[in-house]
């Protein structure tokens, strides 16, 4: 059997959109192998997320128990392995979010599965499936074969369109045998970055700043608010402590693919570009005409962001 199991991600009963991209990738694998796709939702009070996922035409196993309330890999991995066995899955797929990256390799060991991470595309023909994934910060794309009986991969959500709603789904509860007392990991707290703005990875427009902001993200935040955009940052700006970690766009931060990406005061290090080159339109605003960001920008403006960004806001208002 070549069934495919999708590990979903949810928080307080809300399904994360990245899961729908993983579902699309899973269906692409199943189409080639002739297997069926099912999904697994883990959590406590996660029923609404399971229903939401089922509304995309997929049978969902729901592992709902207090011991799964927090996304601890140590607690979740054995449940993933058990569900994969129950589903007769030879493929396990999840989104390359911090949850998926933490969990999947741990669960894979229990299944004897090899793992490919951050998969961008599925290639190969006939029964052979090759997975394309970035290496060397995206400077090279590798075509990878997994040689274990059970195989696992995480997908970069920006590379697979979210699955559409469809009939035919269902939710079936699954017993959870994890003993809380046996866990060596305890959740202490989550300091959430609260924002009125859209999530970086979901936003249609991203306005990002780097070293050139000198720590003043005021003009960029104002432009972002005018555009209903998310605010991103280069690693330099995050490392300096100017903005939260959660804002970092790049190979080691968030990978985004908005319709419009405005990079202001960002030089364009490879590391950063790896996280935003999937944007449809890239605008670069930088004082340094030789900044590498101009080599990948669709529209480059050599200017001081502290003059150009407020001027752009004025022009926007004028319509």
């Amino acid at each position: 059997m070549s069934n495919v199991l999708v590990i979903a991600e949810q928080s307080r009963g809300t399904l994360r959109k990245a899961t729908l991209s993983a579902l699309t990738a899973a269906r692409e694998v199943a189409r080639r192998t002739g297997g069926g796709v099912s999904a697994l939702v883990l959590g406590s009070g996660a029923g609404a997320a399971a229903e939401e996922l089922a509304a995309h035409g997929v049978p969902v196993r729901l592992a709902d128990a207090p011991v799964l309330a927090h996304p601890l890999a140590e607690a979740h991995a054995p449940v993933v392995a058990e569900a994969a066995r129950a589903a007769g899955a030879s493929w396990v797929v999840t989104a390359a979010t911090s949850y998926g990256k933490d969990l999947l390799p741990r669960a894979a060991v229990a299944l004897g599965a090899a793992v490919a991470t951050e998969v961008l595309a599925i290639a190969g023909d006939g029964g052979e499936i090759l997975l394309r994934r970035p290496m060397w910060a995206g400077n090279v794309i590798a075509e990878v074969e997994l040689r274990t009986a059970v195989k696992a991969f995480s997908v970069r959500p920006t590379e697979f369109a979210p699955a559409a709603r469809a009939p035919g789904g269902s939710v079936t509860p699954m017993a959870v045998a994890v003993d809380a007392a046996s866990l060596g990991t305890r959740f202490v707290e989550l300091q959430e970055v609260k924002s009125e703005r859209p999530e970086l990875t979901d936003a249609r427009v991203v306005v990002a700043g780097g070293r050139g902001t000198k720590g003043d993200f005021g003009p960029l935040s104002a432009l972002a608010d005018d555009l209903g955009a998310a605010v991103g940052a280069s690693r330099a700006a995050v490392d300096a402590g100017w903005v939260p970690n959660d804002w970092q766009v790049g190979q080691t931060g968030k990978v985004v693919a908005p319709d419009l990406y405005v990079a202001a005061g960002i030089s364009g290090a490879i590391q950063h570009v790896a996280g935003m080159k999937g944007a449809k339109v890239i605008v670069a605003i930088n004082k340094d005409a030789d900044a590498p960001i101009f080599q990948i920008a669709d529209y480059g403006l050599v200017a001081d962001l502290f003059q150009a960004v407020p001027a752009l806001r004025e022009r926007l208002k004028a319509g």
Binding site: L130, E143, K277, V283, R315, L316
Partner: peptide, 26 residues
């Protein structure tokens, strides 16, 4: 059991145009 079969160049983005000012950018 993770075997790289071949390496490819990533799709390259072409450099676009430099605009003169904010008005042209808009």
């Amino acid at each position: 059991s993770v075997v790289v079969r071949r390496l490819l160049d990533p799709p390259r983005r072409q450099a676009g145009v430099k605009v003169a000012d904010v008005a042209e950018l808009w």
